[in-house]
Design a protein around this nucleic acid. Structure first.
Length: 279
DNA sequence: CACGAGACCTGTTCGC
DNA sequence: TGCGAACAGGTCTCGT
């Protein structure tokens, strides 16, 4: 589920409080219950239990698709992968189906990591660089510039779609926002990054920021049974809209598999450049 | 270096 | 209706 806008939305809810719970800032972690072993990436379960006890949640942030809870001594990093979600509930609730890790907090609250597909991972580390060290630039930060983006695109003779999904190239884009950004930039997902003109690169840069900002503004996208609250799914222009008309030109949207991911695009607005030596 | 396949998992939806 | 196939917001590892 969660790409940058969804993780940002969850971080914001945990930081400022939600409909039925207060902010988690200042809460003390009284204990952890690990229900699916592999959810905890590091350290060992025993060390995790021992280290997390008594730490206070000081800050709640995000880097790429990682949720960051800065604690008294360490940082708790959470990656939701495909189906993960976080909820705050009374600590007396019985564990719901698919709960993988639960944190008891003071005030009778519990922070629960729910993840049907079990792909999500949690780390407790002193140094976040161990986990976040290879991430690419943060697309909404001021140091992500159109000039720098153009120069980095030039370095890769790779198809655009898989490159945009590569978190070491750019942090936070996932399948939905990559498809939506490419459509707004009128670029075919299989165009080689290195062939983009300066203007095309700048257009893509602006499109990426636009879709992410709109996603955040609409509290993310909610699809299927995972994650609730977001509205961005009502504003997709191509994602999962096979056969429906392109909002720009009316041509039916098509789907391709690129890098093992379903890819949605308008075959009219997003054309592959014709080779110069074509017959 | 660039790319594809397979793995990790469970649940929903689609097609016959 | 039933049942298997296809598909799903992500990332890692291996082989070519």
């Amino acid at each position: 589920m969660p790409e940058l806008p969804e993780v940002e939305t969850i971080a914001s809810i945990l930081r400022h409080g939600g409909d039925h719970h207060p902010s988690l800032l200042g809460k003390t972690i009284l204990g952890a219950h690990l229900l699916w072993e592999r959810t905890l990436a590091s350290p060992s379960p025993a060390e995790f239990q021992e280290k997390i006890f008594g730490q206070v949640i000081r800050e709640i942030g995000r880097r790429g698709k990682y949720l960051l809870l800065s604690l008294s001594r360490d940082t708790l990093l959470i990656h939701l992968r495909m189906s993960g979600d976080l909820l705050v509930e009374p600590s007396t609730n019985p564990p719901a189906p698919h709960h993988r890790l639960m944190f008891d907090l003071d005030g009778g609250l519990r922070l629960s990591f729910n993840d049907p597909r079990k792909f999500g991972r949690v780390w407790l580390v002193a140094d976040t660089q161990v986990v976040l060290g290879n991430l690419g630039p943060e697309p909404l930060s001021s140091d992500f510039t159109p000039e720098g983006f153009y120069e980095r695109l030039q370095r890769y003779n790779r198809q655009l779609k898989p490159l945009l999904l590569d978190q070491t190239f750019l942090a936070g884009l996932g399948n939905i926002y990559a498809d939506e950004a490419l459509h707004r930039a009128k670029l075919h997902p299989q165009v080689s990054a290195a062939t983009l003109s300066r203007t095309q690169a700048e257009h893509l840069w602006a499109s990426i920021r636009q879709v992410l900002q709109e996603g955040i503004q609409r509290s993310g996208a909610s699809i299927d049974w995972v994650y609730r609250g977001g509205e961005f799914q009502h504003h997709f222009r191509v994602y999962r809209r096979v056969g429906m008309p392109c909002p720009e030109c009316g041509t039916p949207i098509r789907r391709l598999v690129i890098g093992q991911r379903g890819t949605h695009f308008c075959p009219s607005c997003q054309r592959l450049p014709t080779p110069l030596n074509a017959p």
